[in-house]
Amino acid sequence: MKNFCYPFRLMLLLSVTVSTGLSAGTPENDLKIFRKLSEKLQSVKTISYHYTREFTYPAEDYHSKSEGEMYVDFSKENDLAGFRYQYRDTTGFSVFNSTELFETSAEDRTIQIKNKVMPSDFEGLSALYNSIITLRNILPAVIGDQTIVKQVKDTLIGKKPFHVLNFQTQDRYPDYLGKRFTVTTEKITFYNKIIVDKKSFLPVSYIQLKKGSRDINRTDFSHIVLNPTEPKENSWYYSTYLKEYKEKKRESVKLIDAGQVAPDFSLVQNETGEKVSLQQFRGHPVLLEFWIRNCSYCIKAVPELNTLNTRYGVSGLKILAINTTDSQQAIHQFVARHKVNYDTVNGDTSVNENYGVSAFPQIILIDKQGIILYSGDLNIPVLDAMIGKNL
């Protein structure tokens, strides 16, 4: 475990007020330093650091500062964003476990959960603004774009040597994830400065300025630890926190009621790639489990469902575990790791909407004629009795 600690406040405001206009072309030696930083960040598997974000807008008499503790894991299989993270500060904490994104509020003790995460959901998250994640993702684009002028200078801060990597962009700036540039609606020249410790070759600050303005956006990374101790496994699941935090009310979604005709669907069986519909199981009771990978309750459900399948599968019960969130590879890994003995299927989220599913796991038991017998949590005694009567 490598630890890089920067307890001092980097006094770089003098360096950001020097000449910010860059000349055309990038010297090869400067480009090598940009590449070295990019390669260093790409090599990081897990990292933790103290994160400080500061906005200073003198013309508007505005100053804002926030800070907290960040843990990022780039080494896991992450389908959507290429990472997962946990961030904590005085206002609460946020977690993205590569499937779900949830945030808590220390003030009202609530938790807000988003199960179907889109890339746009990361915009506006404080912990990601001009972060290590941003730099890791945007640097290859900066290096590869010849229209972006780049330059490297050296400086001493507290008698320690640092590189100052400068790059200039016109009418665009990195988005929160650094996956692309956000284009501005007005003409703005952005001056970007990355302060890099020469010894560790890790960034300790990212400063963003605008031509003709005294506004400064600045993020600092201190107490950096490479390959830190990983957070406990259950800390990645929102279900772990439901005793301490009340789920924040979202748009009302009602689970389908017993007595209704079960909506048909067309899904794909993960094991074979074949199309699966509810209609094809007419004449057999069917148990649907709606689940996602990063859910402790879903993991705990596996042995219970395995037992039901072993007990009733030979008599005609069909269990289908529906996952519309995770990749096929992630589902395969889950099935292997937890020794699932029933079928898993995937498809688009319309099946969740048709059954009114907004939390996981949810169970739907359907009789031989396609009528819903039960909908709700995994209640083994109730399901056991119902299945026994409907075979």
Results as ranks from 00 to 15, higher is better:
residue 3 N to Y: 14
residue 8 F to A: 14
residue 14 L to P: 07
residue 16 V to K: 07
residue 25 G to Q: 09
residue 37 L to Q: 03
residue 44 V to M: 12
residue 55 F to E: 10
residue 56 T to I: 12
residue 56 T to W: 06
residue 61 D to W: 04
residue 79 D to L: 06
residue 80 L to K: 13
residue 81 A to S: 15
residue 84 R to D: 10
residue 105 S to N: 15
residue 107 E to V: 06
residue 113 I to P: 03
residue 122 F to R: 06
residue 126 S to L: 14
residue 133 I to Q: 08
residue 135 L to Y: 09
residue 139 L to S: 06
residue 140 P to G: 11
residue 141 A to W: 00
residue 151 Q to N: 07
residue 157 I to L: 14
residue 160 K to C: 10
residue 162 F to Y: 14
residue 178 G to F: 00
residue 180 R to E: 14
residue 184 T to K: 13
residue 187 K to A: 13
residue 197 D to Q: 13
residue 200 S to F: 11
residue 203 P to L: 02
residue 204 V to E: 02
residue 205 S to P: 06
residue 205 S to L: 10
residue 211 K to S: 07
residue 212 G to R: 12
residue 217 N to P: 07
residue 221 F to K: 08
residue 230 E to K: 15
residue 239 S to G: 10
residue 242 L to M: 14
residue 244 E to S: 15
residue 249 K to H: 14
residue 265 F to D: 04
residue 267 L to C: 05
residue 268 V to P: 02
residue 271 E to L: 02
residue 272 T to M: 07
residue 278 L to E: 12
residue 282 R to D: 08
residue 286 V to K: 02
residue 287 L to E: 05
residue 287 L to S: 05
residue 289 E to N: 05
residue 289 E to L: 03
residue 289 E to V: 03
residue 293 R to S: 05
residue 299 I to V: 14
residue 300 K to V: 06
residue 302 V to S: 03
residue 302 V to N: 00
residue 313 G to V: 07
residue 319 I to F: 00
residue 320 L to E: 01
residue 321 A to R: 00
residue 322 I to M: 08
residue 332 H to F: 13
residue 336 A to S: 02
residue 340 V to C: 03
residue 342 Y to G: 00
residue 344 T to G: 02
residue 347 G to P: 00
residue 352 N to M: 10
residue 353 E to P: 01
residue 354 N to K: 15
residue 357 V to Q: 03
residue 360 F to P: 03
residue 360 F to V: 09
residue 361 P to D: 01
residue 361 P to C: 04
residue 364 I to M: 03
residue 371 I to K: 15
residue 378 L to A: 09
residue 380 I to A: 01
residue 381 P to C: 00
residue 382 V to H: 03
residue 388 G to A: 15
residue 390 N to Q: 09
